[in-house]
């Protein structure tokens, strides 16, 4: 099988297009690279959506955490404490077990009412269930970072906004939020990289890979199990991750430039 054939057969294998059976013997370097790269689609999918949704939710949680009202502050604090205090790995297990139990419960309560049973079934699939876990995880970590940044916004800025009569919403939108982002950006970049790396745990921990549609690590360990040779698949996945980590860092660097465009000499 030539490399072009491999690409057309397996490049989208992880999302169910192309050849049904995975290669069984005589793995070439091309097989490794294409299939692992195909799995990387899942890692990118999880990273992009978890970070995208997590960012907005984290702002809300951070503001709630800094609120004067205990009814807002306490839930936010508890949420952050539980998620940041426990391993992501355990969170995956708990979420999966819970999601598996849900349909059974729903079925017992309203027999024959198929809508709930049908809906909760999606939760046990990785594309939704694992995404929820990753989303909650990054929300908590990001909220903690944003909360710290929120407390370091210069007091003078807020007083200035008050003195020209900005409404609370406008003050947040125009003064506090941009400052907060600027202060938090370096740490947030780190969190984004961590989350991207954490996506490898999805198929490895609990959510089963359906019809061998897995992520990059799933395929890498498939090859390593079959060939007993870790020196080909793992370096390949490592190179992929290093490349995408660099791209992620570059994107965040560009955004950082934009956030600081009014400052002098900030690279």
């Amino acid at each position: 099988m030539s490399c072009a054939e491999t690409i057309s057969g397996y490049a989208l294998r992880s999302i169910g297009w192309g050849e049904r059976l995975l290669p069984k013997t005589d793995f070439t370097l091309c097989d490794h690279a294409v299939l692992i790269g195909s799995g990387l689609i899942w890692n990118l999918y999880f990273a992009v959506f978890a970070l995208g949704f997590g960012f907005f939710f984290a702002v809300l949680v951070a503001v709630a955490r800094a609120s004067d009202r205990p009814a807002l502050r306490w839930p936010a604090q508890a949420f952050i404490f539980v998620i940041r205090g426990s391993p992501l790995f355990i969170q995956f297990f708990i979420a999966y077990e819970t999601f598996v139990l849900i349909p059974k419960v729903a079925f017992d309560i309203n027999l024959g009412f198929m809508e709930i049973t049908a809906e909760t079934r999606w939760l046990t699939k990785a594309w939704l269930g694992a995404l929820i876990v990753l989303f909650l995880n990054t929300t908590a970590y990001t909220a903690q970072i944003f909360h710290g940044a929120l407390l370091s916004v210069p007091k003078g800025d807020i007083e200035a906004a008050d003195s020209i009569g900005m409404s609370p919403y406008r003050k947040f939108r125009r003064v506090i939020f941009p400052s907060m982002l600027r202060l938090a950006w370096a740490s947030y970049t780190n969190e984004a990289i961590f989350l991207f790396h954490a996506t490898t745990l999805v198929f490895f921990s609990s959510f089963p890979a359906w019809r061998q549609k897995g992520d990059a690590l799933y395929y890498a360990s498939y090859f390593a199990d079959k060939t007993f040779n870790p020196f080909v698949p793992y370096p390949i996945i490592a190179v992929y991750f290093i490349i995408f980590t660099l791209i992620l860092t570059a994107i965040f660097g560009l955004l950082n430039r934009r956030l600081n465009r009014h400052m002098r000499n900030v690279s």
């Binding site: 490898t200 793992y234 996945i237 490592a238």
Partner: peptide
């Protein structure tokens, strides 16, 4: 930079078999 640029679980799995062999 290599160890930090790669997901830790990948490195664990690799290091384990590599060390063994």
């Amino acid at each position: 930079s290599i160890v930090r640029g790669v997901p830790d679980i990948v490195f664990f799995l690799f290091a384990l078999i590599a060390m063994d062999q």
